[in-house]
């Protein structure tokens, strides 16, 4: 049972991630999961979406460099050691992990949460709050 992942080449320059995700927004594509691999000069945006064919079409039309890869979406027990147990099983069967990232989980109805690593957290807190974006506190996370 495979899932199609779309990878997009994203040059490291201001506004690039915004414009790529805007293309998806305009195509009404829902991102179900995402991660970014970063290097000094470029990043690879990897996404799982609701409509892969359509997403590929609009990304190519927008001159994005894209590729698709078969990946596995595995559900683990949402409890301490859930990931470790899965890793152990893979390791015992000589399977290596190239990369992994978490699926956006429905924490509240119609909301998906992402972890952001930012260079100016103080400012970001204000900007996100001003835009009506709900932020989870460390306490919220522990009580999920």
């Amino acid at each position: 049972m495979f899932v199609k992942q779309i990878s997009i080449f994203v040059e490291n320059k201001p506004g690039r991630l915004m414009s790529v995700t805007k293309v998806l927004k305009e195509g009404n594509i829902d991102i179900k999961a995402l991660s970014i691999a970063d290097t000094k000069d470029f990043g690879i945006l990897r996404i799982i979406v609701n409509d892969t064919q359509k997403a590929l079409e609009i990304l190519k039309k927008a001159d994005c460099t894209v590729t698709t890869t078969d990946v596995i979406a595995a559900g683990v027990e949402d409890k301490p050691g859930g990931v470790a147990d899965m890793m152990q099983a893979l390791y015992e069967n000589q399977i290596s992990v190239e990369y992994m990232y978490a699926f956006a989980k429905k924490i509240e109805e119609k909301k998906a949460f992402a972890i952001l690593r930012l260079d100016n957290n103080e400012k970001a807190l204000k900007v996100l709050a001003d835009n009506g974006i709900k932020l989870l506190s460390a306490e919220d996370i522990t009580t999920l």
Partner: peptide, 15 residues
């Protein structure tokens, strides 16, 4: 400019 043939989902392969 990166070409579709060069691009991959892993950093390792592109590097």
């Amino acid at each position: 400019e990166i070409s579709p043939e060069m691009f991959s989902d892993t950093v390792k392969s592109i590097e």
